[in-house]
Design a protein around this nucleic acid. Structure first.
Lengths: 186, 186
DNA sequence: ATTAGTCAAGAACGTTCGTTCCTAAACTCC
DNA sequence: GGAGTTTAGGAACGAACGTTCTTGACTAAT
């Protein structure tokens, strides 16, 4: 009963995640959200409670629909070089990684709930990289774990470089070279 | 002539850089700066023009006094493993790297002047990593450049992980393992 | 001693922020 | 076809933002 809502909640969440991936949390106003999402203020507050509530929902959506599949593809990559190619190759995941980047840098330190959302995702990232790396009996196990952690860091770092303005060709070069090197020595 | 100023400009800039390294640009208000720096509003505006002006001066100060020396130590490290240890080992540079991190992620995309400040610094970082890696005649030159780029990305990525809440021991493990691996294959 | 110039202190400015209130419209159920 | 309920729309709220203005304190040169 009651008037039916004139918007699709899933669509709104997806659009919000996209918007939050372009600028910082504080850099996006409620007016921006209202304008960009085409949904009125009142509806947003009714549905998500607050700006932070909408942000958290959008973040969780992005982690689930963008990052989680990426993690799966990394795990299935076979080797570290493939994992790197998978993580950096797909432009569709750029928005998800950007949102993850900003959540980690500027939100997690001041919002414990954001930190709690990120921790398992980053751990899963590490685990996936670990899986992609495979076991090598002649190598120290801790060593492999550490390299997997470093791979996650490298993916995020390269994405950060791209966001900071480093040309895409340079990023691609770094990714390709690292993949090449990792492959040769694995 | 005139009343002498009751604060040291260099000290203020250093304190501002430290404060800006803890939270996002928008997350720090002018009141926060006035309180933390112990300098009055009017003096800050007289000296730096605006909040953004103070931020830019603080950013440049940090790049020059924290990042530039770090880049030099990376270049002098001798090999990639040493470069990684140098970059992650010193807690004194954490503030500088955090500020660099947030500047790259959230300011550079919306403030061209910040992007212009960061670009040469990141390029210098790459160059230093390139120097630390050294030349290996049996290896492709582009390959070495790419690995140097990746090292910069890894340093930033690991620093990001630390900021997002990943335990320090985990970060250290990743750094040590990567250093170990790089050393063995270099 | 007076004057001119700079700085400190704090009130106050107009805007913008996130949020809430109020009313009209649109639907289901009885 | 009212009654009841939920949404849409827009105005309006207090608070906080970056910035400016006004006043009084202080110092150096005249």
């Amino acid at each position: 009963m009651g008037r039916p809502r004139g918007f699709d909640e899933a669509t709104v969440v997806r659009s919000a995640a996209e918007l939050f991936s372009t600028r910082s949390y504080d850099g996006i106003s409620m007016d921006d959200l209202v304008t960009h999402l085409g949904v009125h203020r009142n509806s947003l507050y009714k549905t998500f409670g607050s700006k932070r509530g909408l942000y958290l929902v959008a973040l969780r959506w992005s982690l689930r629909h963008h990052i989680a599949p990426l993690v799966d593809r990394v795990a299935a990559a076979g080797d570290l070089a493939g994992a790197l190619r998978v993580a950096l190759g797909e432009p569709a995941t750029e928005a998800g990684l950007n949102l993850l980047l900003m959540a980690a840098v500027e939100r997690a330190p001041v919002d414990p709930e954001v930190a709690d959302e990120l921790a398992p995702v980053l751990a899963a990232f590490d685990q996936a990289a670990r899986t992609a790396a495979g076991r090598h009996p002649d190598r120290d196990e801790q060593d492999d774990d550490g390299v997997a952690l470093a791979l996650t860091a490298t993916i995020l770092g390269l994405r950060l470089r791209a966001r900071a303005g480093t040309p895409g060709t340079t990023i691609d070069q770094a990714g390709a070279a690292l993949a090449h090197r990792l492959t040769r020595h694995t």
